[in-house]
Write a protein that binds this DNA or RNA. Structure first.
Length: 476
RNA sequence: GUGAAAGUAGCACAAUGGUAGUGCACUAGACUGUGGAUCUAGCCGUUGCGGGUUCGAGUCCCGUCUUUCACCCCA
């Protein structure tokens, strides 16, 4: 037998799952639009020249490449030992940020401060695992054209607002600053060439602890004294304490965050990096106070060990954390250089991406999705002597009343048809026989009570609707 | 990319190396214009695939594919 499962890391969605995803999508769209963001879409496929070199070495390897076709393929294969670049010039998009940068460069007459959101699938040739897929939806908000920290505060506020609207309160947003990280690395006496490996190691602090990071730093060629110095900048405990009452909509202020920032400031005071660290430190303080005036109030946590993998970040970086989810529920940051790689001149930008798949997963676990019936409300059952056109005529009348109507397409015994109505979650059946057609009446049965009526069509419709209003929503 | 475990009916699972089964689901019937419960009957399999050991393999061995879990990395 053929393997009928979708390819590894890709999924089919059942009606019930899809209704949850659509609900999530609708809430996200509503909240982002209230925050003044407009929606765009870009193609699934981009030129490899657009995608490559933006995500770091590891990222590039995870891009799905699209093989040349026909003549181009034969030509490439014929040229001795073809390289990856000979065989493909197109790839599936890896995220939505790089396509946005290309989009900005390609559309020069956009508003000077362009606020866009984008909800589309992306593809990564990664090994799938729990909550990790090869095809997954990303959900980005970005503001381009300004270096103002207001933009950071706005994107943090927008994603916080989404989570709150969804009834998800148990989260924080960790913040840090790429420039600050560079300062810390420099202050530990490390050359800039050690920045990337150091960042990767530091990012794991909350997972593998100080000893683990220390070991990893040494493995990457950093001396023991440098590693010790570097680690001394970080708190031993993970700084992601959540609001005391997790159902609280308005948690405490971020007083502790300012203390932590000051602590770091003092530590750096006498180092050569002291001067360079002033700007990121003050930006983080500003961000804390600006964002606290909006929906992100009480959610921000300064975490000096937050690094994030993508290489294009230049300023503040963020990540959503929750004890309900092992990894992150989303993240983002400022990337002032990326758009310039396409347009030739710099356009600063900051963005935040909600981990749509993880959020959907966590919400399922916490039962945060409302009951979203999408199954038919009425199943029309009929006797063999009724002509199909009669049935369609009746269905059309009911549908014009905004009732979700399914027609049973065959005419076995009525009992079978009613049984089917039950199994698909219909609330009522309409039973059509010769009597009903002749007298222009409807016979309707309310399945949960068994109550059955035969009335002239308009009265019957009123009765059916009255049943629905007292029926519990059912989802199949 | 590394390590571990598991693949048997549509689904969930059984079967000391000796006839492949049970439940759910599905189909039909138990008063020919009325569902849910119960009962009866029926349908459903190249035991992931390919080799090997054996008189005999779902079971043991090797390979392979797929899936799940844990690392790695990420959202």
């Amino acid at each position: 037998m053929l393997n009928v499962a979708p390819p590894s890391g890709m999924r089919d969605f059942l009606p019930g799952e899809l209704s949850h995803r659509k609900y999530l999508e609708n809430v996200i769209r509503k909240i982002f639009e209230i925050h003044g963001f407009v929606s765009i879409e870009t193609p699934a496929i981009e030129n490899l020249s657009t995608l490559l070199g933006k995500y770091g070495v590891e990222g590039d390897q995870l891009i799905y490449r699209i093989l040349h076709r026909r003549e181009k393929l034969s030509r490439a294969l014929g040229s001795g030992s073809p390289s990856e670049t000979d065989l493909a010039e197109l790839g599936l998009r890896y995220d939505l940020t790089v396509p946005l940068a290309r989009f900005m460069a390609n559309n020069r007459d956009l508003p000077r401060f362009f606020r866009r959101y984008q909800l589309q699938p992306v593809w990564r040739a990664d090994r799938p695992g729990k909550g990790r897929f090869r095809e997954f939806t990303q959900c980005d908000v970005d503001i381009t054209g300004t270096k103002s920290l207001l933009a950071e505060a706005e994107v943090c506020g927008a994603v916080s607002s989404v989570l709150l609207e969804l009834g998800f309160f148990d989260f924080t947003i960790q913040i840090n600053h790429r420039e600050l990280l560079k300062c810390l690395i420099a202050a530990a006496g490390l050359e800039p060439s050690f920045e990337e490996p150091s960042l990767v190691a530091i990012d794991k602090l909350d997972k593998i602890g100080k000893e683990g990071v220390w070991k990893e730093l040494l493995e990457r060629g950093i001396t023991a004294s440098q590693a010790e110095k570097l680690l001394s900048f970080f708190q031993s405990e993970l700084n992601c304490k959540l609001p005391e009452n997790e159902t609280s909509k308005s948690p405490q202020k971020e007083a502790g965050e300012f203390c932590e920032l000051s602590r770091l400031e003092n530590l750096l005071d006498n180092s050569p990096a002291a001067q360079a660290s002033k700007k990121p430190l003050s930006q983080l303080k500003d961000l804390l106070s600006i964002a606290s005036a909006g929906p992100a109030k009480g959610r921000l946590r300064f975490d000096a060990s937050l690094a994030r993998g993508l290489s294009y970040y230049t300023g503040p970086i963020f990540e959503i954390r929750s004890p309900k989810c092992k990894g992150s529920l989303g993240g983002g940051g400022r990337y002032d250089g990326l758009i310039g790689m396409f347009s030739g001149f710099e356009i600063p930008a900051v963005g935040f991406s909600i981990g749509f798949e993880r959020l959907a997963m966590v919400m399922d676990e916490l039962n945060l999705f409302p009951n979203l019936p999408q199954n038919p409300e009425v199943l029309i059952c009929c006797f063999p002597e009724i002509s199909p056109s009669e049935v369609v005529r009746i269905a059309t009348i009911l549908r014009s009343e905004n009732i979700r109507v399914e027609i049973f397409p065959e005419t076995p015994k009525i009992g079978k048809q009613i049984g089917y109505a039950e199994s698909v979650g219909a609330k009522a059946t309409v039973i059509l026989g010769t009597e009903e057609i002749i007298h222009n009446r409807l016979t309707a049965k309310f399945l949960s009570s068994g109550e059955q009526i035969t009335l002239p069509t308009p009265e019957a419709i009123i009765k059916i609707k009255s049943w629905f209003s007292k029926a519990k929503p059912t989802a199949v």
